[in-house]
C-alpha cells in the first residue's frame, strides 16, 4: 500500500500505539508461504483473482458504458430486442471454457495435497478446548501447547494491558511445535472434545480435527523460521485463544531439540508415575 493510505490511520493510532506491530498492517493479500503447496495455492489464488478481475472489467465495463450512454435524461431511445440466441450461446460457452481452464491446475494441486505418502516424520495433533497437544509418533515426545502467558493476561476482559505492547499477541504459545526444515511432515489430526481446525497460513494447509476420527495433511517447509496460525473452527468460548505455532529448525537443531524434549517428557512421565 502507498504511504498516503498509511498516514491517516497512523495518525489516529499514534496515541495508542507504543511500538510498531511486527506484522505488516493494512495487509491485502494471502501470504505466499514457505512450502511448495502454499506457493502453488497462492499461484492458483492469484490466477482466479485475475480471471475474476478480467471478467469484472468486461461485465462492469459494459454496465457502466450502458449507464453512461443510454440515459433517459440524455434522450436515449430504447431499442426493442429481447433476445439473441447467438449471444446467449456465446456467454454460456465462454464461462465453461474458463472454468475448465481453472479446474485443471486446481485438480493437479489437489492431487499433490492429498498425497501423504513417504513422509519423514509423523506428528499427531489433538485439539482440546482450548489448546493443542502434539505427539511425535515413535519418538517418545509429546506435550501440550497453550496460549503464552502475556497474551493470556492481556486478552482478559478489561485487563488494561494494551495488546500492542505484547509481541505476537494471541499468536504465541508456551511450547511450539518444532519440525526440521526440508522434511515432509505428516500431521495426523484429531480432537478430544469438539471440532477444531489446525491452520498455518504459511504452509497453505488447514484441516479439521474431529473427535473420534483421524484426518491427515502434510507440509514440507523450505525455510527456517517461526510460522503462526490459529484454530479455524469455532470451538467455544476461547476459540480465538488457541494459536498454532510451528518452529522450523535445521536438521541438527531439530535433533537437539528432540533430545532435550524427550528427556523432559520422561521426567514429566516419571513425576506423574510417582
Amino acid at each position: 500500500m502507498s504511504k498516503i493510505v498509511n498516514q491517516a490511520p497512523a495518525a489516529i493510532a499514534a496515541a495508542t500505539l507504543p511500538a510498531a506491530a511486527a506484522h505488516a498492517a493494512w495487509e491485502l493479500n494471502m501470504p505466499v508461504g514457505v512450502t511448495e503447496l502454499s506457493r502453488e495455492i497462492h499461484g492458483l489464488h492469484m490466477l482466479i483473482l485475475w480471471v475474476c478481475v478480467l471478467i469484472a472489467v468486461a461485465v462492469f465495463g459494459m454496465l457502466i458504458y450502458s449507464i453512461v450512454k443510454f440515459r433517459h435524461s440524455k434522450g436515449a431511445v430504447a431499442a426493442n430486442f429481447d433476445h439473441s440466441t447467438k449471444a446467449e450461446v456465446i456467454w454460456t460457452l465462454i464461462p465453461i471454457a474458463i472454468l475448465v481452464g481453472l479446474a485443471t491446475p486446481a485438480a493437479e494441486t489437489l492431487i499433490k495435497i492429498e498425497d501423504t505418502r513417504d513422509s519423514d516424520l509423523t506428528v499427531k495433533v489433538t485439539g482440546y478446548q482450548w489448546k493443542w497437544h502434539y505427539d511425535y509418533l515413535d519418538q517418545d515426545v509429546s506435550f501440550f501447547s497453550t496460549l503464552e502467558r502475556r497474551s493470556d493476561a492481556a486478552r482478559q476482559l478489561g485487563s488494561g494491558i494494551d495488546p500492542r505492547s505484547v509481541e505476537n499477541y494471541l499468536l504465541e504459545v508456551d511450547n511450539r511445535m518444532v519440525v526440521p526444515v526440508g522434511a515432509k511432515v505428516r500431521v495426523l489430526l484429531t480432537a478430544a472434545d469438539v471440532i477444531h481446525s489446525w491452520w498455518v497460513p504459511e504452509f497453505g494447509m488447514k484441516k479439521d480435527a474431529i473427535p473420534g476420527f483421524i484426518n491427515e495433511l502434510w507440509f514440507r517447509a523450505d525455510e527456517v523460521g517461526v510460522y503462526r496460525g490459529q484454530c479455524a473452527e469455532l470451538c467455544g468460548r476461547d476459540h480465538a485463544f488457541m494459536p498454532v505455532v510451528v518452529e522450523v529448525k535445521s536438521q541438527a537443531e531439530y535433533a537437539a531439540w528432540l533430545e532435550s524434549r524427550r528427556a523432559e517428557t520422561q521426567t514429566t512421565a516419571l513425576a506423574a508415575a510417582q
Binding site: A13, E27, Y169, W199, Q230, A232, L234, A240, F241
Partner: peptide, 18 residues
C-alpha cells in the same frame, strides 16, 4: 486473506486497521 479466522472476538494487532 491475511489470515484472520472468522468467529473470533479478539485478534492479533496486524488485523487492527482493516
Amino acid at each position: 486473506l491475511a489470515g484472520m479466522p472468522r468467529r473470533i472476538p479478539d485478534y492479533n494487532t496486524q488485523f487492527a486497521d482493516w
